[in-house]
């Protein structure tokens, strides 16, 4: 028994809380590290697929972080990427089968992007940067935190894109009918991918003007 195991730190120590909550704002995978942009553009036309995607990614990233962290001392460094990919791929197939079984419509909308979770840079990034060097519990928290940080941005983008692009939220019409009678028209550009990119840009802008220390100095 080493010395550090003797004095156990509490489950939600300040350090662990930071692992969980940091990625939601100041260390956000999308807006700060700019990872995982591709799926943020592809699945955010409607709110429902975005939420499902956010949950799927969170599950995959949390569980794979946990598994890799448990295996971290037995993985030979030379083949670590392959091992990581096997773990992620297995989890993604599980998630895919689960979605097909229980939410078939959404699974059809997400189509190839569920499979592409394997290549999501956030997951590989967290495995390499965190799970390979940390214990299981902090790794799990880190995975959940990053998954939520990714999911929150996805949901914000999808909310605005669905509201302005289709006039609905979760498939329910929210923009009152009399506005359409006045000549209001849904914004077709919100449905196109470039607008997701611009929305990400606006979120980054808002976030940085609220937290001045995030602005890079050159």
């Amino acid at each position: 028994m080493s010395a550090e195991n003797l004095e156990r730190e509490p489950l939600f120590s300040a350090k662990n809380k930071k692992l969980l909550l940091g990625p939601i704002n100041k260390d956000n995978p999308i807006t700060i590290q700019v990872l995982g942009i591709c799926s943020a553009l592809a699945v955010t036309v409607k709110l429902e697929p975005a939420v499902v995607m956010a949950i799927s990614v969170t599950v995959v990233i949390a569980v794979s972080n946990l598994v890799i962290s448990l295996l971290r001392n037995t993985i030979p460094p030379r083949i670590r990427i392959i091992v990581q990919l096997v773990v992620i791929a297995a989890l993604v197939i599980l998630v895919d089968q689960f979605l097909k079984a229980y939410v078939y419509d959404v699974s059809k909308q997400l189509s190839v992007f569920v499979g592409l979770i394997i290549t999501n840079c956030i997951i590989m990034g967290r495995l390499e940067a965190f799970a390979m060097a940390n214990k299981p519990w902090p790794s799990l928290l880190d995975g959940i935190g990053n998954g939520i940080g990714y999911g929150i941005i996805l949901i914000i983008i999808a909310f605005f894109r669905e509201l302005l692009g289709s006039g609905t939220i979760w498939g329910i019409h929210v923009i009152p009918k009399f506005l359409y009678d006045f000549g209001y028209v849904n914004n077709g550009m919100m449905i196109l991918p470039p607008m997701a990119l611009i929305t990400v840009g606006i979120i980054i802008w808002v976030q940085r003007s609220r937290n001045r220390e995030l602005i890079e100095k050159n």
Partner: peptide, 10 residues
């Protein structure tokens, strides 16, 4: 261009 892609009917 924004108008063209956002409200093509108009």
């Amino acid at each position: 261009a924004f108008l063209f892609f956002a409200y093509p009917a108009h």
